[in-house]
Computed example of a mutant assay.
Amino acid sequence: MSVVDIHAHVFPEISRAESRALTGSDEGPWLRTSDGADTGMMMAGTHEYRPVRRSLWDPAARVADLDRLGVDVQVLSSTPLLFGYDLEAEAAADWCRVVNARTLTHCSYAPERLVPLCQVPLQDTESACAMVSEAMRQGFRGVHIGNHLGDRDLDDGALLEFLTHCAQESAAVLVHPWDLPTGPRSSRYMLGWLAGMAAETHLTILSLILSGAFERLPASLRLLFAHGGGSFPYLLGRADNAWHRRDLVRADSAAPPSSYTGRFSVDSAVFDPGALRLLVDVMGAERVLLGSDHPFPLGEEAIGRLVRESALTETEKAAVLGGNAIRFFGLHDLVKEAS
Rank of each mutant, 00 (worst) to 15 (best):
R238L: 13
V71K: 09
S339M: 07
F162P: 00
A172V: 02
D240V: 10
S133E: 05
T182H: 07
D38F: 11
K317H: 08
K336R: 15
I326E: 11
A89Q: 05
V99A: 14
P12N: 10
E300S: 06
D153C: 02
E316I: 11
F83T: 01
T105N: 06
A199P: 01
V4F: 06
G84T: 12
T261V: 15
Y234P: 01
L22M: 07
E286T: 08
T39N: 13
G230M: 14
P121I: 01
A219Y: 01
Q123D: 05
F232D: 09
L279F: 12
H165R: 11
V249H: 09
K336Y: 04
T315D: 15
G150S: 03
C107Q: 04
S186P: 00
R327C: 13
A110G: 00
D58I: 06
L289N: 12
I209E: 07
A8L: 08
E301Y: 11
I326R: 13
M41A: 12
T315H: 12
F328D: 02
D247A: 15
A255K: 08
L235C: 11
M43H: 11
S207V: 03
N147A: 11
V132H: 02
T182F: 07
V266N: 01
G274V: 11
A226M: 02
T23E: 06
V143K: 12
P273S: 01
S258M: 08
E27H: 12
R32T: 02
H227F: 12
Y189L: 08
R141V: 14
K317D: 02
P297M: 00
I205Y: 03
G24I: 10
A254E: 09
A239T: 05
F162S: 00
R141F: 09
G304A: 13
Q168V: 04
G192N: 15
A325Q: 03
L82G: 08
H165I: 01
R32V: 02
R20D: 13
S78I: 08
P177G: 06
L69K: 09
R305I: 05
L334H: 03
G274E: 13
S55I: 00
T313M: 11
R305P: 00
S310D: 08
W57S: 00
G142K: 08
R263T: 03
A213Y: 10
R245L: 15
E286W: 02
V173R: 08
A37K: 14
F162Y: 06
R222F: 01
G150D: 01
Y85N: 15
A172T: 03
R185G: 05
G237D: 13
L180M: 02
D267K: 04
E169Q: 15
A199G: 04
C107R: 05
P121C: 01
R327P: 01
F140V: 14
G36T: 15
V175F: 01
S25K: 13
S187G: 14
